[in-house]
Design a protein around this nucleic acid. Sequence first.
RNA 1: UCUUCCUUAGCUCAGUUGGUUAGAGCACCUGACUGUUAAUCAGGGGGUCGCUGGUUCAAGUCCAGCAGGGAGAGCCA
Length: 475
Amino acid sequence: MNFDFNTLLKGETTDIDISVRGWVRSFRNNQFIALNDGSTNQNLQVVLELNKFDDALLKRITTSACVMASGKLVKSQGKGQTVELVADNIEILGDSDAEKYPLQPKKHSLEFLREIAHLRFRTNTFGSVFRLRNALTYAIHTFFQERNFLNIHSPIISASDAEGAGEMFRVTNLDLDKLPKTETGEIDFSQDFFGRSANLTVSGQLEAELAAMAFSKVYTFGPTFRAENSNTARHLAEFWMIEPEVAFNELSDNADLAEEMLKYVIRYAMEKHADDIDFLDARLAEEEKQKPTAERAEFGLKDKLNFMLEHSFERVTYTEAIDILLQSPAYKKKKFQYDVNWGIDMQSEHERYLVEKHFKKPVIVTDYPKDIKAFYMRQNDDGKTVAAMDILAPGIGEIIGGSQREERLDKLVQRMNEMHIPTDEMFWYLDTRRYGTCKHAGFGLGFERLVQFVTGMGNIRDVIPFPRTPKNCEF
RNA sequence: UCUUCCUUAGCUCAGUUGGUUAGAGCACCUGACUGUUAAUCAGGGGGUCGCUGGUUCAAGUCCAGCAGGGAGAGCCA
């Protein structure tokens, strides 16, 4: 019979003969193995009675060796754990050369662990992070499935280059050393695999809209690719995005859905993995202690998450947000590096001020000037703004971006013309407005930014197993 | 891509005004101890000071270039 350690360590069942397998975290006193199977950060203590095992075997019980231990699970005779396994038999399933193995039972920097991403799963921090990432994945599907949303697999390869969401990765099987050219000297993509130029998707939104026009409520949850040369703690070249799209929803429904979803998945992760949140909370507190007082975060991780669950997100229009900034002490004392006036695309410093200083909780900013937003957003009656919304979270910045979509064909075409988006290539998108159009709205949630928010990890590269960033595609 | 900081043992980091043989903690190895909790104690091995060039009697230390990394910014989710 096999039990995971998370179950065994609850101590509900003892005095049974079992066999367990895991990786050695530490071996103390030639007598106590701290064994871990990844189900929890808690280790199962395996007790080796003295003189029962020969020295050659004991020497092979090294950090990160893979071991099978058989014996009786009993109430622990020492302090520090509820149960322990008194071993009758130890078998080394996989040796680990202690001299060469890079991880030690001590603190390592996250930068160092990033360089050994293939081994960092075996640390407490990344154990907690990836169990929480998994819980959040499950919670997102559960949230939408419970509400009868249909999961849509939007394409990963896309020929559309009209989405305007930034630089794209080209997909081709042309011989790069002998590119076929047209008569005018351009690359002849008619000879490429798809007979036209293709890219990795930057968004599943447009396809999700098509599906919403049949299934009413849909969501995508898949990988997304951006070839931007972004070197920050919150950008990846390959990341996962959740994009719900709902027919008949208006902007306020969209904001309600986003807020409800965020609270649902965060609550689920906190309940399911309270011990991992506790661990990361303590880790973060320790990290904060190293900083000068002025730079320390006001909230601990758990406090931040609880505060967020207990309060409604603040909702302000872009126009109100600009007014708040103009009235702020920071503005009056000229603390902002960038100027504030109606029409600007708010800078990080402005968003941070609203979220971290003024409201101290997530903020939903709506109704942005149309000139700084995408062509598909619904034009408001004022002629100046569109029904867009961004959700800004403390420490992360923009975690969700969404909008009510322009469902009126004439207004959409007019806007596409103004913004030089080719309407002929996008006939399939415009067809939804030709045949049974209706109001609808949706948003995009950056999954890794959500995981950052829940785990308190400062760098997005530490919440995805193998981060892809400019000049970095190891593992 | 821009600004700024960093690069010394496997890891984390000291290294004074440029001056003899570059240090500490942890890890590793040897031994002691044996109900330990990142066990403890004693001893030991381990270095192309990121790379290239320059200044100097003398460079880990000063200068330049390059490479890699961090933080902030832009772009965004």
